[in-house]
Simulated scan of single mutants.
Amino acid sequence: MTIQVKSPIAVVSVFLWIGFVCAISFMEAWLKFQAPGITLSLGLGIGRLVFGALNKVEWVFAIAIGIQLVIHKAPLLSTKTVAFLLPLLLLFIQTLWLLPALDARAEMYIEDIIPPASNLHFYYAGAEVIKVICLLIYGITQFKKTDYGKSY
């Protein structure tokens, strides 16, 4: 039995995307505040920079995967395609709404203005968890077992 990869570019892109999200959203985001000398304002400034960069990198991966889906003419309602489209939708929401809203809140803190309570960070973290799960499913669907050379 051998394992065949349907789309190597998509496999590399999806697992790098998962790695970036896990490393930044689930590790860097809260660890930076544990470093000596990091104030809330400094940590928020770093976070804005890092998450802005992460968002751009995510778009590169999403575009690479999307191109592969188009090239391979993937059916729109297949498990594989839906497992990619949901993270893509969440990335749109993060890009157009969550990140700008979180940036505005961070800017308020940096300017010593305390904004009203908000659940935006929970929405962002929830979206990240859903993205990682869906991307993992998508990545797994890229592998296919074959029985080359097996006689029946």
Rank of each mutant, 00 (worst) to 15 (best):
L85Q: 09
V57N: 01
G47M: 00
N55R: 11
L49G: 15
F122Y: 12
T141F: 13
V129C: 08
L54C: 07
E128M: 06
V132N: 03
G139W: 05
P75E: 09
Q68H: 11
Y123N: 00
D103P: 04
R48G: 04
L88I: 06
F61S: 06
I65D: 03
L31W: 05
M1A: 11
T79C: 09
I63Y: 02
D112T: 11
P116Q: 15
P100M: 02
Q4S: 14
T146D: 06
G126I: 01
L102V: 00
I18V: 11
Q34K: 15
W17D: 05
I113Y: 11
C22A: 15
A127Y: 01
A83D: 04
V132D: 02
G139V: 05
K145A: 14
Q94N: 07
L136V: 08
A104D: 11
D147Q: 12
L40I: 07
A125C: 06
P87T: 02
Y109E: 10
L88V: 05
K150M: 09
I114N: 10
G45T: 02
Q4N: 14
A117G: 10
A23P: 03
I46K: 04
S151L: 14
V5I: 15
P36L: 02
L90Y: 01
L136H: 08
G126Y: 02
S41G: 02
V60R: 04
L54R: 01
V12A: 14
S7Y: 13
I18E: 09
A74T: 14
L99R: 08
P115S: 08
E128H: 10
A29W: 00
P8E: 14
G139D: 04
L135T: 09
F33N: 01
L98M: 10
C134W: 05
E128I: 01
L86N: 08
G52K: 05
F61K: 05
Y138L: 13
I140N: 11
L76W: 11
T39N: 00
A23S: 14
I71Q: 15
P36W: 01
V70I: 15
V132H: 07
E107P: 09
T79I: 15
L96Q: 09
V82S: 12
E111N: 15
F92E: 08
Q4I: 14
N55T: 12
L120M: 05
G45P: 00
F84N: 01
N119L: 10
K144D: 13
H121P: 06
E28S: 03
I67D: 08
L120N: 00
T2Y: 10
